[in-house]
């Protein structure tokens, strides 16, 4: 909370330097984020994918793994969902929609399981492998939408045909234009909470995150926890891609994600890696992006102030976490422990 105030303070100073009135700007941002049912609807729609992808970062983080591969998992998840959606145009909606979402989960899950497996079995750093898979995933989708999957009547745009109505996420609030994706995301958040604190697998993941060595000595299957956390995390990011395609974009392209996978890292960390925190952080950042968009339109202030604020808040969050004495002491113990093991 303090971090968010600090972040807003710093970006307020930047806004002032750029020659705008910070208070007026923040007022416009707040109104643009939640002033009317329509704007609140946009905020909620913005928040949905970063909520899901944020959970996809938070879950592996609980297991001690940083998933920077959200972007690639989102693209491959969106690909899976699109393929199932356009391959079976005649399925009834109650089967077609869940099946398409599941395909998104599986697509992203595969893209997450690869680095998980590489980490668990071969000891390869997941940060490097997920970054590489981001690019491979992106270029794969880019090739497909420029080539085999391209809509023949697209007037030169590189995108697929529209997904059939039976696979689309229906609008659940007509005025705010919010689709069912939001509900899906909230249910998923609840499921992740349940997984982490009510199941054996969740316990194993948290144990591995607390210390892989001691977890191993305690007989916890470290390999399984590592691979599963990355596979499920990737799957959640894949669902994020699926809800964007099935709920908003309706076609797969290679430009549908404005960096959801990276927003997800911020959302997971500001949300303190708990599902409830992730939901709140996603709503905050979704509103921030939406609000700065309207500040850009009415005041002409560069929209990137949203990204700046996001980065600064993140720095404040990690700075304040490490400043607390408890954390310092724990780190000290950890360094000793690590040296002791060596």
């Amino acid at each position: 909370m303090l971090a968010i105030v600090g972040g807003l303070l710093v970006s307020g100073v930047m806004i002032a330097i750029a020659g705008f009135d910070p208070l007026e700007t923040f007022a416009v941002i707040a109104r643009g984020a939640a002033g009317t049912p329509q704007s609140l609807g946009v905020t909620l729609t913005n928040a949905t994918p970063i909520l899901l992808a944020g959970l996809g970062v938070a879950l592996p983080l609980r297991c001690g793994l940083l998933n920077i591969g959200g972007e690639g998992q989102i693209y491959i998840g969106a690909l899976g969902a699109t393929l199932v959606a356009i391959a079976f145009p005649n399925l009834p909606a109650p089967i077609h929609l869940p099946l398409s979402l599941l395909a998104g989960f599986i697509g992203g899950g595969i893209w997450g399981a690869i680095p998980g497996w590489m980490r668990a079995v071969k000891g390869l750093n997941e940060i490097i492998t997920t970054i590489m898979l981001n690019y491979i995933g992106f270029w794969t989708v880019s090739y497909l939408v420029h080539g085999p999957l391209k809509d023949p009547d697209s007037y030169g745009y590189a995108w697929t045909i529209k997904v059939p109505v039976s696979a689309r996420l229906p609008i659940i609030h007509e005025v705010a234009r919010v689709n069912l994706g939001l509900v899906v995301a909230l249910i998923v958040a609840a499921l992740v909470h349940f997984l982490l604190w009510r199941t054996t697998l969740g316990f194993e993941m948290r144990a591995v995150g607390a210390g892989p060595q001691s977890a191993r000595f305690a007989g916890i299957p470290v390999t399984r926890g590592t691979i599963m956390s990355m596979a499920i995390g990737g799957g959640l990011a894949g669902v994020a891609g699926a809800v964007v395609i099935l709920g908003v974009q309706l076609r797969l392209s290679d430009f549908f994600s404005p960096g959801y996978g990276f927003d997800a890292i911020a959302v997971a960390l500001v949300g303190q890696t708990t599902p409830v925190g992730v939901v709140l952080a996603a709503l905050f950042f979704g509103g921030l992006q939406n609000g700065t968009g309207s500040a850009h339109r009415t005041l002409g202030i560069p929209q990137e102030i949203a990204l700046v604020t996001q980065g600064i808040i993140l720095l404040f969050v990690i700075g304040s976490q490490s400043l607390t004495l408890v954390r310092l002491l724990r780190k000290r113990r950890m360094v000793r422990l690590v040296e002791h093991i060596r």
Partner: peptide, 27 residues
């Protein structure tokens, strides 16, 4: 100085600087 997580600090800087550079350029 703050002994913060190195990867997270770097990731935060990437996000912040991406926004900051564009913001400054546009401003």
């Amino acid at each position: 100085t703050l002994a913060a997580d190195q990867v997270v600090s770097g990731a935060a800087l990437n996000i912040g600087v991406l926004g900051m550079t564009t913001f400054v350029f546009r401003a």
